[in-house]
Computed example of a mutant assay.
Amino acid sequence: MSESRRIILDCDPGHDDAVAIMLALGNPAIELLGITTVGGNQTLDKITRNALSVLVMCGREDVPVHAGAHRPLVRRVEVAPEIHGESGLDGVELPEPSRSAQETHGVRFIIDQVMAAEPGTITLVATGPLTNLALAARLEPRIVERVREVVVMGGGYHEGNWTAVAEFNIWVDPEAAAIVFDEAWPLTMVGLDLTHQALATAEVEERVREVDSPLGEFFIGLMGFFRTAYQEHQGFDDPPVHDACTIAYLIDPAIVETTRVPLTVELRGEHTVGMTVADFRRPAADDCRHQVATTLDHGGFWDLVVEAISVLSAASASGSAAGSAADSGAEA
């Protein structure tokens, strides 16, 4: 097996962020160095708690969580309760976190990790607004040349969801997105054109139900709320699990096809602020540092997710059994 991809996941959990965390923790191709949170799907305090609760469900409370920016660089706070509920993870009973987030700010954690690591060994994965990544690049510009790759769930080259042409993560903080897209690091945009193919169908849920574990039921509860929200507000029969597509791309690039194309973020248009503009007019230059995700292997994607839930569930069950045996031995 090739060496694991070392990543920092910058996120705003969020139903689909939760699945991204499960996939990152449940596949040996990924080494999750830590989670940084950013205000987006809900307020920073809520989504940071959500990250800690998801780690409890996954049996991986060892993963550090660092709270980051609570608001966009220059714009007002915008959240999405109609999609993710008042908690940000409505539809399930969230376990109480056993610890608080780390004291170090998320932006400082990103900088410190990248600067301490060998160049080209850490990938930044962003599944929320790009405020933390923009601040990190501005506070310590040297990280740009040291990062292996930036993978963003956001935008779309033909689709929008928060406006006619803008996707939520980009629209919330377009100035931050413009900074991140304009930096010299390699950047892959996993946008709506791809993620709208990652539908959690009834067949997918049945496969997860067969895992027969608390984590599987947690997933099913999340998807139940998510499905209703997408039916009511986006017109989807089944919910697209956007954010996990970034992790699938890193695990197996064959599951997420990409094409190289220059990208920019619109900041001034009266009706197009937050639009991610992909220039397909001619073949991309050899030095083009951007690419966009285009086509998803739906079956392969869900194979990865179901397997990750199975792996985490088995590890949790094994840990519980070992703990019970130890307790019995102590009583004897």
Rank of each mutant, 00 (worst) to 15 (best):
R5V: 13
R5H: 10
V19D: 04
P28R: 10
A29F: 05
A29V: 00
T36I: 10
N41Q: 04
T43I: 13
D45K: 15
D45C: 13
I47V: 15
R49G: 06
S53V: 13
V54Y: 00
V56N: 04
C58Q: 02
C58N: 08
R60P: 05
R60M: 03
D62M: 14
P64F: 06
G68S: 10
G68C: 07
P72E: 00
R76G: 14
R76Q: 09
E78V: 15
G88E: 00
L94N: 11
E96W: 07
S98I: 13
S100N: 12
A101N: 11
E103I: 06
I110L: 13
I110T: 09
A117E: 00
P119G: 08
T121R: 12
T121V: 07
P129V: 03
T131C: 04
A134R: 07
A136H: 08
I143D: 03
V144T: 14
V147H: 00
V147R: 04
V150H: 01
V152P: 01
G155K: 04
N161A: 05
V165K: 13
A166T: 05
P174T: 12
A176I: 10
A177N: 13
A178I: 05
A184E: 09
W185D: 09
Q197R: 10
L199E: 01
V204Q: 12
V204G: 14
E206W: 05
F219N: 03
L222D: 04
G224K: 12
R227I: 02
D237H: 09
V241M: 13
C245M: 04
Y249R: 14
Y249G: 04
Y249H: 13
L250F: 01
A254H: 12
V256P: 08
R260K: 12
R260Y: 00
P262V: 07
T272C: 03
D279G: 11
R281T: 14
R282W: 00
P283V: 03
A284E: 11
T294D: 01
T294A: 08
D297F: 08
D297I: 12
G299F: 00
G300P: 00
A308T: 12
A314H: 08
A315N: 10
A317M: 04
A321T: 12
A325C: 02
D327C: 10
E331D: 01
